Amino acid sequence: MSEYIAQDEVSKEILNSARLLQAVNVNALITGSMGVGKKALAKFILPHSEIFEAKSLQQDIIDDVLNMQNDAIIIDKIHEITNIDLLLNWLDINSIRIIAISNNDNLNKKLKEIFSINLEIPNLERRELDTKGLIKKFSKEASIILDMEVISSNKLITNISKNTHSLRKSIYFSYLFETIGEEEILMFQERYLSEHLEGENSYKDLLYLFEVPLLKAATKKYKSQVQVAKHLGLNRITLRKKLEIHKELL
């Protein structure tokens, strides 16, 4: 059974609703951004049910290759269904219960009406305790898979811009980073740069790949712009200009 981390109050309320859905035979819609845990929650509700991609399910219904009745299924990306009447008719004739997943709740009105319960999962930026739990989970997972000792939390890079998708990736990168040195870093940079060299202003266009992490690291370490400028060997006017240029990435 998939694990749905629920340590923040909002997540606990969602989990309570999910437990209710385990006990009652109604359709439900789970919405939220990519990586917030929609599929994990759906599998918590229906641990033994098959997950169908919406487009594939629609084609299977058209091709009449499905043989199921009085069953329950999970439909991922239900907003991609284009033939609503086809789906609704199939569900009704075969008495199929669904737990549906969508990145948005901007669904066809007919489709919306079949859901008795709607659960919206917030992004990780609003779920501090859940994020801590996920960091611990992914760190343990990475240490086992990569056969490494668990590294301290202050060495972990945590990126929640795409919720669990980016968080897991950043945790694994943290472990890999422990095994690489300057030579490997230069090698990675060279490969990336060689694949992105184009046009006549490549130096100017790609310079941010060096400047942004340097400015981030210096700002985090030295705090004030006066100290950052001093330790980077820049005058304050130049520093301010660079901070302004890269403000969207800092």
Score class of each variant (00 low, 15 high):
Ser139His: 09
Ser139Cys: 09
Leu167Glu: 04
Asp92Val: 08
Val10Pro: 00
His246Phe: 15
Ala18Phe: 01
Ser102Ala: 15
Met68Gly: 03
Ala28Trp: 01
Leu207Tyr: 11
Ser17Ile: 09
Ala28Arg: 01
Asn83Ser: 13
Lys230Gln: 15
Lys136Asp: 12
Asn108Ile: 05
Phe173Leu: 13
Asn104Gln: 08
Arg236Trp: 06
Glu198Thr: 09
Thr158Ala: 14
Asn154Gly: 04
Asp76Asn: 14
Val228Pro: 00
Glu13Tyr: 11
Gln58Glu: 15
Ile96His: 02
Ile117Tyr: 00
Ile245Phe: 10
Ile74Met: 03
Asp205Leu: 06
Gln225Asp: 13
Ile180Gln: 11
Leu46Val: 03
Lys140Pro: 03
Asn27Ala: 00
Leu91Val: 05
Phe44Arg: 01
Lys155Gly: 07
Arg126Trp: 09
Arg168Gln: 15
Leu206Asp: 03
Val150Arg: 11
Lys242Gln: 13
Gly181Phe: 04
Ala100Trp: 02
Ala23Lys: 15
Gly233Val: 05
Phe173Gly: 10
Tyr4Thr: 03
Glu200Pro: 08
Gln69Asn: 13
Glu198Asp: 09
Ile135Trp: 10
Gly199Ala: 05
Asn118Leu: 09
Ser17Ala: 10
Ser170Thr: 04
Ile117Cys: 04
Lys162Arg: 13
Glu211Pro: 03
Asn16Thr: 10
Val26Glu: 00
Phe44Met: 02
Leu249Met: 13
Asn104Met: 08
Thr82Phe: 11
Ile5Arg: 03
Ser152Glu: 14
Leu209Ala: 01
Tyr175Lys: 06
Ile101Asp: 02
Ala72Ile: 04
Asp205Cys: 05
Lys220Leu: 14
Tyr203Gly: 08
Ser143Leu: 05
Gly233Ile: 06
Ile61Cys: 09
Asn94Gln: 04
Val228Arg: 05
Ile14Tyr: 02
Asn83Cys: 02
Asn108Val: 04
Lys77Ile: 03
Lys140Arg: 13
Gln7Phe: 13
Gly181Trp: 04
Ala40Ser: 15
Leu57Ala: 07
Ile151Gln: 06
Asn67Met: 11
Leu41Gly: 00
Ala54His: 05
Ala42Phe: 02
Ile84Leu: 07
Lys12Gly: 08
Ala28Thr: 00
Glu178Pro: 06
Phe44Pro: 01
Glu248Gln: 12
Ser152Asp: 14
Asn27Val: 04
Asp205Val: 06
Asn94Cys: 05
Asn106Ile: 11
Tyr203Ala: 12
Gln58His: 00
Ile84Ala: 09
Lys77Ala: 12
Ile135Glu: 11
Ile14Met: 01
Ser170Pro: 00
Leu20Cys: 09
Ser153Gly: 01
Asn83Met: 07
Lys38Gly: 04
His246Asn: 15
Ile160Val: 13
Gln22Asn: 14
Lys137Asp: 07
